[in-house]
């Protein structure tokens, strides 16, 4: 079995989270490797979130907003 990355994505409620919703409405198909955490704004993003996500086994952290 090939290796599959685990990606944690922190999405801004006002834009990227909505964009991910829209990807669904448009039925865009993408790999099921991301786990979304909704944040109120990317301003909320703390370096500690990156570090602990990596420590918890995430292969990548994606912040979008």
């Amino acid at each position: 079995m090939s290796w599959e990355p685990k990606i944690v994505s922190f999405l801004c409620n006002w834009c990227s989270y909505g964009a991910a919703d829209l990807a669904g409405v448009s039925r865009f198909q993408y790999p099921p490797n991301i786990r979304v955490i909704r944040i109120p704004c990317t301003g909320r993003m703390s370096p500690k979130f990156f570090l602990s996500a990596l420590r918890e086994g995430a292969d990548a952290v994606w912040v979008s907003g």
Partner: peptide, 25 residues
């Protein structure tokens, strides 16, 4: 927990993995 827009709608080809993702979320 968003298991439609972020999951079932976008991972139609891989229902097992979609179910795993739903459990995680």
């Amino acid at each position: 927990v968003n298991i439609r827009n972020h999951d079932s709608w976008v991972h139609k080809e891989t229902p097992d993995l979609a179910t795993d993702k739903a459990k995680d979320l």
